[in-house]
Amino acid sequence: MTRTDAGLTQNPHAVRDTREKNLEVAIGRQVRALRKHHRMTGADLAAKSGVSVGMLSKIENGVISPSLGTIQTLAHALQVPLVRLFSGYEEARGCIQVKAGEGVETDRAGTRAGHQYNLLGHLGSNATGVVNEPYLITLTDRSDTFPTFQHEGMEFLYMLEGCIEYRHGDRLFLMEPGDSLLFDSDAPHGPENLLELPARYLSIITYPQKD
């Protein structure tokens, strides 16, 4: 595949502005920054939002905890989504390490004898709104072929060892060490022809977090 930066909008090396660990202070800073961005005085924003000048001053200085209704009113007056006012808050971010050989062996729908799944990490509820499930999948000479899978989200495969033909929809892809495959997992998919065993590959599944 030819390298292209088209559509890649994130700079993975960019460092975000310093985050605030106090929620009230973080909200206040966002309100003040957005007010100034719109070139509004405190009195202007108070008049537009219906929040008193005194209350607004306390919010911007982080000395009170505004109600959700007040935050929503200010967000509307500042013409930003509600969540924007929380964007400067430093939340705890999850991180899991799994040492070599310690991935939890697990069953997934469609697992057959000789198909071994090792879950390499899992973060539950998180701030991204996305669930990520990385698996190390091993197919041995005892393996029989899969029924095809279908599930929501996206899936990324990276071939480590062996050789298989992997089905996605009505297409077959030859997968050898170093090959990768990224696809919409709502289409029927799965390893169809096991050509060189044992075979091992990484499968990383992402899908929206449920409420």
Rank of each mutant, 00 (worst) to 15 (best):
M55C: 11
T106Q: 04
K210G: 14
E24T: 02
V104F: 05
R171Y: 15
L78W: 03
L157P: 00
R93M: 05
E176C: 10
M154H: 15
G94L: 12
T4P: 02
R39F: 13
G110R: 13
E161G: 03
K48H: 10
R200G: 08
R39T: 11
S143E: 03
A75H: 14
M175E: 05
I205K: 09
R3M: 15
L202A: 01
I205D: 03
S65A: 08
R3I: 15
F86V: 08
G54Q: 01
Y207H: 13
L182S: 14
V25T: 15
L123N: 00
T128Q: 09
S185L: 01
D5M: 09
S57K: 01
E133T: 07
G129F: 06
E176R: 15
R19C: 07
V83K: 15
E176D: 06
E196I: 00
L194D: 02
T41V: 11
G103A: 00
D107T: 07
E192D: 13
M40I: 11
T128S: 14
S52L: 06
I71S: 10
L78C: 05
E90F: 02
L197C: 02
E155S: 14
P81K: 07
P12Q: 04
L195N: 02
M55K: 12
N61V: 02
P177E: 02
S52E: 03
T18W: 11
L45G: 15
A187Y: 14
N22H: 06
M55H: 15
D184R: 07
Q116P: 01
T148F: 14
V98T: 12
E105V: 06
L181S: 03
G124L: 01
E133R: 12
A14Y: 09
L74V: 10
K210H: 12
G121D: 00
I96A: 02
P81I: 08
L157W: 01
N11R: 14
E155I: 10
T73K: 13
T145V: 12
D17H: 11
K36W: 12
D170G: 04
L34Q: 12
D17N: 11
G28H: 03
E133N: 07
M1D: 05
S125I: 08
Q10L: 11
G169M: 08
R108H: 06
P147I: 12
Y158Q: 08
E90K: 08
G153V: 01
Y89P: 04
R171I: 14
A100E: 11
L120M: 08
K21S: 12
R112V: 14
A109I: 07
G7Q: 15
A77K: 08
M175K: 06
G190F: 03
A46T: 07
E176P: 12
G103N: 00
E161D: 10
V31P: 04
L23K: 01
S125H: 09
F173S: 05
P147W: 06
D107M: 05
R112K: 14
G62Q: 00
G50N: 10
E152N: 15
R84G: 04
V63C: 02
